[in-house]
């Protein structure tokens, strides 16, 4: 089995997904005048120009331990009923981190200091870049899994369900993501740059029911997004 081993890195070309970024901004077909549209597109363009998307991932053997799912050799233990369900039967887990880059963080700070609207629009575009970088990473994981005859399920991030954010430092350490992506974790377990994602993808012998739903989410009783039929995931 050659899945384990060193960290894999990628610097994917990512475009701003216009529809997705607009959706983050609450766009649902409203009439937008030309001036505002030009301003939004200008920010999207600036975002595409300034972001430096990149990702890393590493694959670890998974087993169920006393406290949760243990990823051997990584120092990561995943605590929570929901993630245990998600990774039930997984032979390996791919641990990944993707980011729109530190330049996005600096640009956002700069815009926040001068103009709230520009910052918001840039932020939505940078989120879409971080998602695109995550997609590229996910695709690389799927490709490796396939080559090894394994199936994957959807990527699950800390903060979903009952998987606490305090697993972030261990993930960043296991991936050496500080050295490789410039990713840092704050004392409250948030990522810097903010437009970054960490996630876990299970690798299984059998094909998985590869659909995400609100079922495992602790907020599903209260969530307005769910009620509106526009969940926080795609």
């Amino acid at each position: 089995m050659s899945l384990e081993g060193p960290v894999r890195m990628g610097r994917p070309e990512c475009a701003v997904d216009r529809a997705e970024a607009l959706r983050y901004l609450g766009y649902a077909g409203q009439d937008v005048d030309a001036a505002l549209e030009e301003r939004i597109d200008g920010m999207f363009e600036r975002c595409a120009r300034t972001c430096e998307p990149a990702y890393v991932f590493r694959i670890f053997p998974a087993r169920l331990g006393e406290k949760g799912v243990v990823l051997d050799g990584s120092g990561i233990v995943l605590v929570g009923a929901d993630i245990a369900r998600h990774l039930h039967g997984a032979r390996f887990v791919a641990v990944m981190a993707a980011t729109a880059g530190m330049t996005s963080e600096r640009e956002l700070r700069r815009l926040s200091a001068t103009n709230g609207l520009d910052a918001m629009v840039y932020g939505a575009a940078a989120s879409s870049i971080a998602e695109a970088a995550s997609d590229a990473c996910n695709a690389a994981i799927v490709a490796e899994a396939r080559a090894a005859g394994l199936c994957t399920n959807w990527r699950y991030s800390p903060g979903y369900g009952d998987l606490p954010l305090d697993v972030q430092p261990a993930i960043v350490r296991a991936l050496e993501a500080t050295k490789r992506l410039g990713l840092a974790v704050t004392p409250t377990n948030l990522l810097v740059p903010a437009k970054s994602v960490t996630a876990l993808v299970g690798l299984f012998d059998e094909k998985q029911d590869d659909k995400r739903s609100c079922a495992g989410c602790s907020f599903s009783p209260y969530c307005n997004l769910r009620k509106a039929g526009t969940p926080c995931y795609r």
Binding site: L22, A28, D31, R39, G116, L117, M120
Partner: peptide, 14 residues
């Protein structure tokens, strides 16, 4: 009512 989205709200506030 959903006839404005966030950037429009922000632009009006500006």
């Amino acid at each position: 009512a959903g006839t404005f989205f966030l950037p429009q709200l922000m632009a009006a506030s500006e």
